[in-house]
Amino acid sequence: MIGIKTKIEDVVKTDNSMIDFFNKEKIDFCCNGHMTVEEIAKEKNIDANDLAKKIQGAIKSDNSNREDIMNIDDFKNSDIKEMIDSLIIDHHKRERDLLFEIDPLLNKILSVHFARHGEELMKLHSLFADLKKELEEHFVKEEEITFPLMLENESPSQEVIKKVEELETDHEEAGDIIKEMIELTDWFETPEDACRTYVHTFNLLEKLVKDVFIHIFKENSIMFEKYREKGGK
């Protein structure tokens, strides 16, 4: 039963289909998954009990038709090495490919649609550049520094925990950029005069953002939590 003291991350762990609900409600389940329903309600200036009831009403029991949901369920039952392998293969590679694909398309629609939508697209272009830099550098830090340290140190040391905390800070910074992108575009809604390239670009941006959200949730709320528990923290 969902109450006002329930953590958002615990809702997603119990029912992964709630990812779509939280995205639609603009509730951050990845970087702020540690927050309770009560804290989220206060931040959004709404009644906590009403929000708890809305979340409870949205919970579904059948998740069998969602590939990403089943992936999270499998992820929870994996060991640290399997989790790391999954993150690199299922998210780092996918997100690198999406960043590479989106970059020239965003430049193209900025040029073609500048006259009518220049202000929004200029801002979006700048935010995307910031996100691309943040994610690409973050991937390297994970793959070359922190993930190997986690595998070498089954029992977490203070040095490794510090590196993990740095990654969590990176996640917050990426999350802040994404929130700006979502607010700017109203969840990547395209204008009526948008061409096919415009629509395709925004669809890819939404796909990227949703993947990053799941990626961060898996790390912050599942893998890092599991790793800390190994050290009794």
Score class of each variant (00 low, 15 high):
Asp79Asn: 10
Ser61Cys: 08
Ile59Tyr: 09
Glu101Asn: 07
Glu166Val: 14
Asn49Pro: 05
Thr36His: 06
Pro148Gln: 04
Ile89Tyr: 13
Glu95Lys: 08
Asn153Asp: 03
Leu135His: 03
Glu120Ala: 15
Asn63Val: 10
Met122Asn: 15
Val37Arg: 04
Lys81Gln: 12
Thr146Asn: 07
Lys133Pro: 01
Leu99Gln: 08
Glu168Lys: 15
Leu87Gln: 05
Phe139His: 05
Asp79Arg: 02
Gly57Ile: 06
Asn71Ile: 11
Phe75Lys: 07
Asn45Leu: 13
Gln56Cys: 04
Glu95Cys: 09
Val164Pro: 07
Asp79Pro: 04
Glu142Cys: 00
Arg66Trp: 10
Pro148Lys: 02
Ile72Asp: 02
Ala115Glu: 14
Glu137Pro: 00
Leu124Pro: 01
Asn77Asp: 15
Glu166Ile: 15
Leu121Lys: 01
Arg96Cys: 09
Pro156Met: 01
Asp74Tyr: 12
Lys54Val: 02
Gln158Trp: 11
Lys54Asn: 12
Ser86Ile: 06
Leu121Val: 01
Glu168Asn: 05
Lys93Arg: 13
Ala58Trp: 03
Glu101Ala: 06
Pro148Ala: 03
Glu165Cys: 09
Glu119Cys: 10
Glu95Ser: 10
Glu137Ala: 10
Asp97Tyr: 05
Val140Ile: 14
Asn153Lys: 00
Val112Arg: 03
Ser155Thr: 14
Lys162Leu: 14
Phe75His: 02
Leu135Cys: 05
Arg94Gly: 07
Ile88Glu: 13
Lys132Trp: 07
Lys53Gln: 13
Ile72Lys: 01
Leu99Trp: 06
Phe100Asp: 14
Ile69Tyr: 11
Ser111Tyr: 10
His125Gln: 14
Leu124Asp: 01
Glu39Ala: 11
His91Thr: 06
Asp90Cys: 07
Thr146Ala: 12
Leu151Ser: 03
Gly118Ala: 02
Leu131Tyr: 01
His117Arg: 05
Glu137Ser: 09
Asn45Ser: 14
Glu101Arg: 06
Ala41Gly: 05
Pro148Val: 00
Gln158Cys: 12
Ser126Ile: 09
Ile102Val: 02
Ile145Lys: 09
His125Thr: 11
Val112Ile: 01
Thr36Asp: 08
Ala41Glu: 00
Ser78Val: 13
Thr36Asn: 00
Asp130Asn: 10
Gly118Asn: 00
Leu87Val: 09
Asp68His: 12
Ser157Arg: 09
Asn71Leu: 15
Lys163Trp: 08
Asp103Tyr: 10
Asp130Met: 13
Val37His: 03
Val37Tyr: 03
Pro104Tyr: 08
Phe128Pro: 05
Met150Thr: 06
Lys141Asn: 04
Pro148Met: 04
Glu143Thr: 09
Leu98Trp: 04
Ser86Ala: 12
Phe114Met: 12
Ser61Gln: 12
Glu152Ala: 06
Phe147Ser: 00
Lys81Asp: 04
Glu165Ile: 15
